[in-house]
């Protein structure tokens, strides 16, 4: 095995420290972005549902505005978003490169996506159950917390999983523009540095990450689903 690695993946051995660090950077970028985009996306998704017609809190103007904002951010290509957010990142964290800067664009790019997935998930919650809660004297806030979110949870988890997989890909793209992580290593060492073995190995690690995330996400969703 080690002979095989030394023969066919020489640069991987040589640059292992950098690859290892890149793996952690990718996990860090994806994890933190996923956390913040869920933090923004879930409430946004809930708002998109409850402010719609015939729901808990019909506010057509607010609903349309939110929908518009979400759609605008969803239609901007990620790479354009990265560039557009450079001044914003500078103002917020003092730099436009590195993992933290990438996290900003990753969050802005994926929060609206999560919002839409959460919206769909929550719309699926049976009207009858909402009505039952109303008949018990529940407030809208109680309905959101005790009915809408728990009942939609498996679908929300699936949505977050899809987003996490997407984020792994986007984080690699962010890597190309100076964010670090596996994407950066693949690009800087593998592509620009003519080291195909590094390109290959970093890609393999990305595939492993994607598989892992998908498996964990599926398992959690399955465990929560008592239908």
């Amino acid at each position: 095995m080690s002979v095989f690695i030394a023969t066919y993946l020489p640069n991987v051995v040589k640059f292992w420290d950098i690859i290892e660090k890149a793996i952690y950077e990718t996990i860090y970028m994806v994890g933190v972005s996923l956390f913040f985009s869920s933090l923004i996306g879930i409430p946004l998704g809930v708002l998109l549902v409850i402010t719609s017609r015939n729901h808990l809190l019909p506010l057509p103007a607010v609903n349309q505005l939110l929908g518009l904002v979400v759609n605008i951010f969803r239609s901007i290509p990620y790479i354009v978003l990265v560039i557009l957010l450079i001044p914003f990142a500078r103002a917020l964290i003092g730099t436009s490169i590195g993992p933290e800067a990438a996290i900003i664009s990753l969050v802005v790019g994926s929060a609206p996506f999560i919002a839409r997935l959460v919206e769909t998930a929550i719309r699926e919650v049976n009207r009858g159950v909402i009505e039952a809660a109303q008949s018990m004297g529940a407030t809208n806030w109680q309905i959101i917390r005790k009915i809408l979110i728990p009942e939609a949870m498996p679908a929300i988890v699936s949505g977050i999983t899809v987003t996490a997989v997407g984020l792994i890909g986007y984080s690699a793209m962010a890597g190309v523009v100076g964010a670090g992580g596996l994407g950066a290593v693949a690009f800087n060492y593998g592509f620009n540095g003519f080291k195909p073995d590094i390109m290959f190995v970093t890609t393999v690690f990305m595939i492993i990450l994607v598989q892992g995330v998908q498996m964990i996400g599926d398992a959690i969703a399955r465990k929560m689903d008592h239908r």
């Binding site: 049976n126 009858g128 159950v129 009505e131 039952a132 809660a133 008949s135 018990m136 004297g137 529940a138 109680q142 005790k146 009915i147 728990p150 009942e151 949870m153 929560m224 008592h226 239908r227």
Partner: peptide, 26 residues
């Protein structure tokens, strides 16, 4: 209290948790 044709139970909760829901709300 209200009882519905299609029961309208929360499938994310156990039977006991479903029955406790109105108490949580109150």
């Amino acid at each position: 209290g209200m009882v519905f044709q299609h029961f309208n139970l929360l499938w994310s909760r156990t039977v006991a948790e479903n029955v406790a829901l109105p108490m949580e709300i109150a």
